[in-house]
């Protein structure tokens, strides 16, 4: 019905392997994201899904589409490129935002050397308000 019967055995085995690899890594990433205790630990878990999770599924989709529809595999590469390039930017920005919020609240779980912001990055009014300098 969907053309899956026409795929030969030598192509179906790598497709299956890549699909199972990608979905397993995504599941492990989500499971670790639920289990880890601190936000800075949890930040690392979804990168499993965004590196080889996305890579495996997009490679499998490209293989299947290039057999079934004689379509160029460039479309899948766009998805892989978009995810692999943009997600580190998101995570870096999110980590900095979280660090900023923790510093503003003087969170107890931050190591003491991280509580002090670099002087050139902090506005004078905020330094005076937070009481970090006399």
């Amino acid at each position: 019905m969907s053309g899956l019967e026409t795929v030969p055995l030598w192509l179906s085995i790598p497709i299956a392997l890549f699909v199972i690899l990608g979905s397993n890594l995504t599941l492990i990433g989500a499971w670790g994201f639920l289990r880890l205790s601190s936000f800075y630990d949890r930040l690392h878990a979804p990168t499993l899904a965004t590196s080889w999770g996305t890579g495996g599924v997009t490679i499998a989709s490209a293989l299947l589409a290039s057999w079934l529809q004689d379509r160029s595999i460039l479309h899948e590469l766009i998805i892989g490129f978009a995810v692999i390039v943009t997600v580190p930017v998101t995570l870096m920005l999110l980590a900095r935002a979280s660090l900023h919020r923790d510093r503003m609240e003087r969170a107890a779980h931050l190591p003491p050397e991280l509580l002090l912001m670099h002087p050139s990055l902090e506005r004078p009014s905020e330094v005076a308000a937070s009481g970090l300098v006399e």
């Binding site: 899956l4 019967e5 795929v7 030969p8 055995l9 192509l11 179906s12 085995i13 497709i15 299956a16 392997l17 699909v19 199972i20 990608g22 979905s23 397993n24 995504t26 599941l27 990433g29 989500a30 499971w31 994201f33 639920l34 899904a49 599924v57």
Partner: peptide, 25 residues
């Protein structure tokens, strides 16, 4: 044979990804 491999692996992948969505929820 190849059809069975593809259908089972795609079903497994769907289940695993659905479970990952639930964990994120």
């Amino acid at each position: 044979m190849s059809h069975t491999i593809l259908v089972w692996s795609l079903t497994y992948a769907q289940l695993a990804l659905a479970l990952a969505t639930c964990l994120a929820d």
